[in-house]
Write a protein that binds this DNA or RNA. Structure first.
Lengths: 371, 371
DNA sequence: ATTATTTGCTAAACCGATATAGCAAGATAT
DNA sequence: ATATCTTGCTATATCGGTTTAGCAAATAAT
């Protein structure tokens, strides 16, 4: 005897078929809206489905159809506001088209990135969105793993020598813009508080910084770049060290991201160094809190939510299409948002539109352009 | 002929069995570390697995074993720092024991909560962690849906009249503590900037606020509670409205969460109202940025990361155990973190340990007690 | 009227694992 | 030497769907 267990078993397609007096194929056809079913049987089957509150088993579906209707999203840090926005963009897109999002995160550790990817591939996701860790010595073996698995892939960071779909921003250009802005304010000694080595974003921002210094004929001594990190504490520690030392200090600091920048500001405040009169600070990402922080923080606006949507869209274009695999790069603009944390090198306020408004009335939280 | 497609098909258990010269049952036994396999065959099979780089199909596994080794996590807002910490806690726990986390979010809309849950149930998650929306008129039908589906459940908020596992904090007590603290500083006119009606957390905090006012013999007129919301913009708008009006204003504002509190601070600054001299502000959640905001924000520290871990742990205890279903409530402490945003009602600084330090050296980011 | 085509449905193979029953050979007990 | 138990493995049913081939009846074409 089947289905006579102690527990009420889940309703299956067979139950529906039996009660509707049709074959399970017919039920399957109804479920998938195939045309070759008469209106009368269709309605009858639907009625039974409703009555039994039947929910198709997606696992069984996945196994036989070879499509799981799920995708994997692997970020670097789950609780970083930048990735959080991306996650929301990706989630909203896919939940809108009946797909499930499986969460992965490397938490900045390469081995965890690998195991996250492997776990998602075992779950046979239909596609993967990945923000890859990559050092100069990068072991990109798991990337080829994905590619050889025929799983559609979209990266959230360019990877050298890998032909894949990418959604990214113009890091170098944005960094160039930020540093040029500082130079335009009269700053000469500008430090870059760098992110992790294994971040391509960091390397691109560093390049933009270097290029801006070079093109304006400014020196960038080794001390110009300080290894910070990605956390608030990292920026705090780096600034505390540099600005406690004797000697020539920078008059402006360009940071890998906003968290580092905020940490820097905290450290400077503690040391009695005024922002922006003594030191100007610029962050990156333009997270929600930039306008609310001690001194409103100048930052590079990164359309993270839109990046998530764009990556999802690009991925979706590939899912199901077996033969043609795109190799597309979508680059979104990232532009400077000047705020009160920057001033002229002599301490006078920066010109331009210094708006007093910190937070406008609740407008769209996700506006932003896309190229 | 099988496996002769144009595309290199994935390696299956049959391929391994054939190459190792054993039955697929044997391979399965080896995969699952069953004892009844001799060392020699075990090693031989393992060697073949390695050579073929065989990865078991988790979908097929799930179908036949009726365990997906995945769980669903449904939050209210993906990009809210509070949920973000919870997500990290949950993710770290489950990825540590080979489980996958499927992401869901209601984005504060009941219909989306329902569809998120349904999607996860279709994917046959082994368990569910849910932060439920619930109004006074709450339709908890999807909860019974989960329960009757025999899916282990852990809630991240108490739900009236529902016997389920819950990991939560002592909202009322914490709110009571915060408001009592303000009263102790001499404040009489204290406003509560409330969150959404459908949030049990909001209702509990409101109760704590009321009780504190009552027990200290203070009136709480209808105007004492202002409908704010959950976003920074909500707090901004609410404060802008209240503090632009003529008449008696509160000297202290207790907010549903930190985002609202930060919005309030922005609005007050704009109106030329000083914090904490003119108005004291307290938030809730103690998100990372509390210490970095305009005026360091007093807040209630909520161990969100630990809540995620605790919820995961509680859920894991139930997975697999068919007969015994726990009905456990874990309540974590949430305590006040006084910072510079509060002063005595007469404007003089609050006593106690006003530390100058904004951000200590990078210590453990996730410390916190658990009861 | 006969054949060809379409319509609407079913039977059965299949997806890739798990899990149970059972079988043969070797080890132990009687 | 025979009966009983282990040990180590295989055959096969099963999970709950999808999908293909095919069949019967209805419709259209010749």
């Amino acid at each position: 005897m089947i289905n006579q267990n102690r527990f009420k078993e889940k309703v299956t397609i067979d139950d529906v078929a039996r009660l509707a007096g049709v074959s399970k194929s017919t039920v399957s056809f109804v479920l998938n809206n195939r045309p070759s079913i008469s209106a009368s049987t269709r309605d009858r089957v639907r009625e039974v489905i409703r009555k039994l509150n039947y929910q198709p088993n997606q696992i069984a579906r996945s196994l036989s159809s070879r499509q799981t209707r799920s995708i994997g999203l692997v970020v670097k840090q789950i609780d970083n506001p930048y990735f959080t926005k991306i996650m929301r963009g990706v989630f909203e897109y896919f939940s809108g088209c009946g797909y499930t999002v499986l969460l992965g995160s490397s938490e900045l550790q390469p081995d965890r990135e690998k195991s996250s990817i492997e776990a998602l591939l075992r779950q046979r996701v239909d596609g993967l969105i990945l923000s890859p860790l990559q050092g100069p010595d990068a072991d990109m073996s798991h990337l080829s793993l994905i590619l050889q698995n025929q799983v559609p892939l979209v990266l959230l960071e360019k990877v050298a020598n890998v032909a894949a779909n990418v959604v990214d921003i113009r890091n170098e250009g944005a960094a160039f813009e930020a540093v040029s802005y500082l130079i335009g304010l009269g700053h000469r000694r500008i430090a870059y508080y760098s992110g992790p080595d294994y971040s391509m974003h960091n390397r691109e921002r560093l390049t933009g910084y270097r290029r801006a210094m070079m093109e304006h004929g400014l020196p960038f001594p080794a001390s110009g770049v300080r290894q910070a990190g990605v956390y608030l504490e990292d920026g705090y520690a780096a600034a505390k060290t540099q600005f406690s030392m004797a000697g020539e200090r920078p008059t402006a600091v360009f940071c890998f991201n906003d968290l580092v920048a905020i940490g820097v500001m905290n450290a400077l405040m503690e040391l009695g160094i005024r922002i922006p009169e003594d030191v100007s600070v610029i962050g990156f990402d333009d997270i929600e809190f930039c306008g609310s922080v001690r001194v409103p923080l100048s930052s590079i606006r990164v359309p993270a939510y839109e990046m998530g949507k764009a990556a999802a869209d690009l991925l979706m274009q590939q899912i199901g299409k077996t033969d043609f695999v795109l190799r597309q790069t979508v680059e979104l603009e990232a532009t400077l948002m000047p705020r009160a944390s920057c001033a002229r090198a002599d301490g006078r306020p920066a010109g331009g539109s210094q708006k007093k408004k910190h937070t406008g009335p609740a407008g769209p939280r996700t506006a932003g352009g896309m190229t």
